[in-house]
Amino acid sequence: MADPTTATPASGKPGHRRRRVRDLRAMPGFTTTAWITIVTLYLPILVLVAFSFNENRSVVLWTGFSLDWYAKALENDGIRNAAWVSVKVALFATVISTIVATMAALATTRTKKFAGQGLVFGIINQPLMIPEIVTAIATLSLFALVKKITGLSGIGYLMLAHAAFCIPFAYMPIRARLETMTLTLEQAAADLYAPPLKVFTLVTLPLLGPGIVAGAMLAFVVSLDDVIITLMIAGPGETTLPIYILGAIRRGITPEINAVSTILVAVSVLLVILLFVVQRRMQR
């Protein structure tokens, strides 16, 4: 125990002193408040998950365990189409945003400080700083204009919009990883006459791997969960899972929604747990 007071020889009653030291850190009511915070954060979700397994149609009374609502949800064409759209959009957004974010991260960490660096950070993080509803209506205005001029339509717009707001989320962990990597291994490879491309593919990229994986996972989760921007710009037939769920909630509460919601929450939670594992590896 690195407790300075217990080590003090002058302390006549070590047990008493130690208790006082522990008390010093504590504030009355703070522990209770922390538990209230945790209960507030988790109780609603736990109730939702529990009732998705309820056999009764009621979302109020528990009658017994059942997977019926999952079966019903998985048979529902609307839900299946929405899930497919969500995955397509999220995959596209993840691939694009991760590639461009990796490039941008390399440019902002591997080269010397340059004039306008602050501006570049500002632009990359811009999607995080503006209220989402503003980005949503602004993007809608742009796309409406482009559609009018070019006559092009399709899911490409939605994919591009998702790619744009995923960039900062992909960028953060990749940049963080690059900042902890020293240049020595790459310099050693260059010393051994490896051409720059080989240095990059055989040394930099494998070292950067965990950062890229983390960035890609964050981008995927953020795209999968988006509501406001998608709600504004998705055309007919481009309903993603969250938009489907929003529509269903507006029509009325059913255990089916609980089941789909639970699946979506489970996917995000699994990805985030995976992310924590990857980041722990990174720290070693």
């Binding site: 490039m103 941008a104 503006i130 205005s141 919009a161």
Partner: peptide
């Protein structure tokens, strides 16, 4: 050229629309 794609996407899809707004 490393920065170009990220900046282009964000400028075109997040910042240009603010001007339109």
């Amino acid at each position: 050229w490393l920065l170009a794609p990220a900046l282009t996407i964000i400028l075109a899809i997040s910042i240009l629309p603010l001007g339109i707004t």
